[in-house]
C-alpha cells in the first residue's frame, strides 16, 4: 500500500501549462487494434479488453494512407500497438509496408504468436534493410507475479510466444512495468535478465516502463493527485527535446493524437491528417507529469 498522506500535503501547482513544439516528426505510432485486446491487464492505462470498442480497428487502407503521408514528411521510425495488434488481421501486410520505408516495432502481449506467425515475422525481418523489433510485455518471471496483473494462465502463454519468436530467430525486447518491484532496482533488473537468458534468449533485452495512473491502473492503485501537474512549469530546451510529444504522433481509426498515451482522451486529439498535427501541445494532462518527472519514453 502507498502512503497517501504525504503527497496529499503537496501544494497544487498553478499557472499556465508549458507548450511543447513538434521539433521534428521522427516517430509515428499506429493504434492498429484500438482499445481491443485479448487480455484485460489490471494496470492498462487505456483499460483495453475484449469488450472495449471505444477505439476500433484501423483498416489497411487507413494505415497505408498515413504511411504515405509519413514518407513525405520524412518520418524516421514506426511503432504498431493497441490493444493487441495481432488481433488486427491485416497486421502483417501493414508491417510489410512500414518496413519498406523505415525501422518498425510491434508492441504485443505475445499470446497470439503461433509458430506460423513467428515464421511470417521472420520473413518480414529478412525482407527489410531496416530494423524490425517485437516488444513483449510481461509483469514478472513467474505466474505468481505476472498472472494477477495480466490474467490467469497468461504467464505460460506469454513465455510460449517469446520462445516461438526466439526459435524463429527473432530477439524480442521484453517490457516490464514498475508494477514489478524488481523492475525498480539494478539487482532486480539483473535477475530479470538472467531469467530471460535461462529461458533461451541469448541476447536478452529489457525495457522498464513507469506506470501511468489512469485507466485501469487508477483503480488498481490510485489515480493522479492534484499536485501531479505541470502547471506553471518552465522547461529547458533539453527537457522539451526529451519529451516524446516533441518528436512523435499517434494515429488511430479516428485520427491523429499527440502521443501514444493520450489516445483515449479528447485533450490528445490533433486532427485528421498528420499535416494537421504539426503544432505545439500544452502539457495539461496529468500523464504529462509522468513523462516529465519519470522520463517516460514509449519508444524502445
Amino acid at each position: 500500500m502507498e502512503l497517501v498522506t504525504l503527497p496529499s500535503l503537496m501544494p497544487t501547482p498553478t499557472g499556465a501549462f508549458p507548450e511543447v513544439p513538434l521539433l521534428a516528426l521522427d516517430t509515428l505510432w499506429f493504434q492498429v487494434s484500438g482499445t481491443i485486446c485479448n487480455l484485460r491487464c489490471q494496470h492498462c492505462f487505456i483499460s483495453c479488453g475484449p469488450d472495449n470498442h471505444r477505439l476500433g480497428m484501423m483498416s489497411l487502407e487507413q494505415v497505408l494512407g498515413y504511411l504515405e503521408e509519413a514518407r513525405d514528411l520524412g518520418v524516421r521510425e514506426y511503432y504498431f500497438t493497441g490493444g493487441e495488434p495481432f488481433m488486427n488481421r491485416e497486421l502483417v501486410p501493414m508491417l510489410a509496408q512500414a518496413l519498406a520505408q523505415g525501422p518498425t516495432s510491434v508492441l504485443t502481449n505475445g499470446v497470439l504468436i503461433k509458430a506460423e506467425t513467428a515464421a511470417k515475422l521472420r520473413g518480414l525481418q529478412d525482407g527489410s534493410e531496416y530494423s524490425f523489433d517485437l516488444r513483449i510485455s510481461m509483469d514478472g518471471y513467474d505466474a505468481a507475479t505476472n498472472d494477477p496483473i495480466r490474467g490467469a494462465g497468461t504467464f505460460e502463454r506469454i513465455m510460449q510466444g517469446i520462445l516461438r519468436l526466439a526459435e524463429a530467430g527473432l530477439n524480442p525486447v521484453i517490457t516490464v512495468t514498475e508494477a514489478l518491484p524488481d523492475a525498480q532496482t539494478r539487482e532486480g533488473r539483473g535477475r530479470f535478465l538472467e531469467f530471460l537468458r535461462r529461458a533461451g534468449l541469448t541476447q536478452p533485452r529489457l525495457k522498464i516502463l513507469p506506470l501511468l495512473r489512469m485507466g485501469a491502473e487508477a483503480g488498481r492503485q490510485r489515480g493522479y493527485a492534484p499536485w501531479e501537474s505541470l502547471a506553471g512549469a518552465h522547461l529547458t530546451e533539453d527537457e522539451l527535446r526529451a519529451l516524446q510529444c516533441s518528436s512523435c504522433r499517434m494515429v488511430s481509426a479516428v485520427g491523429v493524437h499527440v502521443c501514444p498515451i493520450l489516445v483515449d482522451d479528447p485533450v490528445g486529439g490533433m486532427g485528421r491528417r498528420l499535416k494537421d498535427s504539426l503544432r505545439p501541445f500544452a502539457l495539461a494532462h496529468p500523464a504529462c507529469y509522468t513523462c516529465k518527472v519519470d522520463g517516460l519514453s514509449c519508444t524502445t
Binding site: A24, D26, G74, R76, E77, Q101, G102, P103, E129, Y130
Partner: peptide, 10 residues
C-alpha cells in the same frame, strides 16, 4: 538500420 531514406531526404 534506423536511418531510412525518407528521413535522410528530410
Amino acid at each position: 538500420s534506423n536511418t531510412p531514406t525518407p528521413f535522410i531526404e528530410r
